[in-house]
Amino acid sequence: MIDLATWNLTIPVGVPATVIDTPLLVGGYQDDYFQSRDGRIFFWAPANGSTTSNSVYPRSELRETYADGTLRNWSYTAATDVLSATARITQVPASGMLAFSQIHSKQGTSPPLMLGYQYVPQTGYGNVVIAFRGHPADADSLKIVLSSKVRLDQDFSYEIHLAKNGTLSIGLVEPGGAVKTWSRSLNKAWASHALYFKAGVYTLDNSGNETNAGAATFSQLKVEHR
């Protein structure tokens, strides 16, 4: 069972996109863009959906909160911050790309970390891609392919681990059981930023109609601040 008491939800409806507060989400909220059943949560974000004020792409995505719905933001120097999950990507848009987890910053639109999925038609597999921005002022993020062996509709598990000293580590278990890892240090400039976790579907495409969409299902999702 995934605990929704530490999240709110953004769905691609309204201008700007609508936020479903934590108490409503915990109370059993369901719609076309988000469903929770049988211990799993399902996200769907069509390319023609509405967007948040600082984005050109639609999302059906959770954002970290406290149980009363207050936004939860943290400094990485205060605790070891961990997000662990098991997910499967069930649909990609025409671009082949979506993001499924982030560490974001309240102070800007450029996150230190985004985990994405890039479908590769030539191989029938998808790449799990890390987009890492080591310094808040970096114009572009560093792109790293963590795994090239994840098909659509296959479960994979991953963990995002950010230590108090700024060491960011990503671990991923591929569908076949192979383990992939990556680690890098954040620049200390990130210490002044209020950070938070996000998870779900951020569809990196805004062309076409609702048949062009991103979708994912999570069977495990947990955040810890140790």
Rank of each mutant, 00 (worst) to 15 (best):
R37A: 14
D38E: 12
D38Q: 13
G39H: 06
R40K: 11
I41R: 07
I41M: 15
F42A: 14
F42W: 12
W44C: 07
A45L: 04
A45K: 03
P46A: 02
A47Q: 02
A47F: 01
N48P: 05
G49K: 04
G49W: 03
G49Q: 05
S50P: 02
S50L: 06
S50M: 08
T51Y: 06
T51A: 07
T51E: 11
T52Q: 10
T52R: 12
T52M: 12
S53N: 09
S53G: 08
N54W: 06
N54E: 12
N54I: 02
N54L: 07
S55V: 01
S55M: 05
S55G: 06
Y57E: 03
Y57D: 00
P58M: 05
P58R: 01
P58Q: 03
R59K: 11
S60C: 05
E61G: 02
L62S: 01
L62C: 05
L62F: 06
R63P: 08
T65C: 10
Y66N: 13
Y66L: 11
Y66C: 12
A67R: 14
D68N: 15
G69L: 10
T70Y: 09
L71T: 11
R72D: 04
R72G: 05
N73F: 14
N73R: 12
N73L: 13
N73M: 11
S75E: 08
S75C: 08
Y76P: 01
Y76N: 02
A78D: 15
T80C: 11
T80A: 13
T80F: 09
V82H: 12
L83P: 07
S84P: 11
A85M: 13
A85R: 01
A85Y: 12
A85V: 08
A87R: 01
R88A: 10
I89G: 00
T90A: 04
Q91F: 01
V92P: 00
V92H: 02
V92F: 03
P93F: 06
P93H: 00
P93A: 03
P93C: 00
A94N: 09
A94V: 10
A94G: 10
A94D: 10
G96L: 04
G96M: 02
M97E: 06
L98T: 00
L98Q: 00
L98R: 00
L98Y: 01
L98P: 02
A99S: 11
A99F: 12
A99L: 15
F100V: 04
F100T: 04
S101M: 08
S101V: 08
Q102A: 02
Q102M: 05
Q102P: 02
I103F: 03
I103Q: 03
H104E: 05
K106W: 13
K106G: 14
K106P: 07
K106A: 15
Q107W: 11
Q107N: 15
G108N: 15
T109D: 11
T109S: 12
T109W: 07
S110G: 09
S110Y: 13
S110A: 13
S110N: 13
P111M: 10
P111L: 08
P112I: 08
L113Q: 06
L113S: 04
L113G: 02
L113N: 05
